[in-house]
Simulated assay, not measured.
Amino acid sequence: MLLAITLSKEFVFKFLRFGLVGFSGIFVDFGTTYLLKEKLKIHKYVANSAGFLLATISNYLLNRYWTFQSQDPKAFEQFGKFFGIALIGLLFNNLIIYILNDKLKINFYLSKVFAIAAVSIWNFFANYIYTFAG
């Protein structure tokens, strides 16, 4: 069965809210990454992954209660779905950074911005269709 997504008013508001939550997650992600990479001298991919994962947790909570206003009593199972999608996103994120930073020699943080933009699109649609579909 093919799921059709229409540009309803509700869909647009969810997309905008998801974007605002994602924007707040950028501060968590970049702040954590910067602290670990620059101040604590932890490897850039470990720092990037930690920032991404902390942002995922804060994003889940904000998206569950504000963006999608989920009442699903199985929050732990729902978080598992959200986290699984985020892990796939993390793979995309690190792959994009690897290509842009390591191969094309683009600044690490600029590469991270491109990675976040690309992964955000994946995250929204995957969560809209799968995690918060109820």
Rank of each mutant, 00 (worst) to 15 (best):
M1S: 10
M1K: 07
L2M: 11
L3F: 00
L3A: 15
A4R: 10
I5V: 15
I5N: 09
K9S: 14
E10A: 14
E10N: 05
F11G: 06
F11D: 11
F13G: 09
F15G: 05
L16N: 11
L16H: 00
R17G: 07
R17V: 01
R17K: 13
F18K: 04
V21N: 04
G22P: 05
G22R: 01
F23M: 15
G25W: 00
V28H: 01
T32K: 08
T32A: 15
T33K: 06
L35I: 11
L35E: 11
L35V: 10
K37M: 15
K37C: 07
E38I: 10
L40Y: 12
H43P: 03
K44T: 15
Y45T: 08
N48W: 04
A50V: 15
A50M: 12
A50Q: 05
G51V: 12
L53F: 03
T56N: 03
S58V: 14
N59V: 12
N59F: 01
N59L: 06
N59Q: 06
Y60A: 10
L61V: 13
L62A: 12
N63T: 06
R64D: 12
W66Y: 11
F68I: 01
F68T: 07
Q69S: 12
Q71W: 10
Q71K: 15
D72Y: 14
D72E: 13
P73L: 05
A75P: 07
A75L: 13
E77W: 15
E77I: 15
E77L: 15
Q78D: 01
Q78K: 12
F79T: 07
K81R: 14
K81D: 02
F82Q: 01
F82W: 04
F83K: 10
G84H: 05
G84N: 08
I88M: 11
I88H: 05
L90T: 08
L90M: 07
L90C: 14
F92K: 08
N94C: 04
N94S: 13
L95K: 04
I96S: 02
I96D: 00
I97G: 07
I97S: 02
I97Q: 09
Y98L: 10
Y98C: 01
I99N: 02
L100A: 12
D102P: 08
K103E: 08
K103G: 02
L104M: 14
L104I: 15
K105M: 09
I106S: 03
I106G: 13
N107A: 13
Y109G: 05
L110C: 11
L110N: 06
L110E: 09
S111R: 13
S111D: 05
F114A: 12
F114N: 09
A117F: 09
A118Y: 01
V119W: 00
S120K: 04
I121K: 02
W122G: 11
F125I: 06
A126H: 04
N127E: 01
N127P: 04
Y128R: 10
I129C: 06
T131K: 04
T131Y: 13
A133V: 15
G134H: 13
G134C: 00
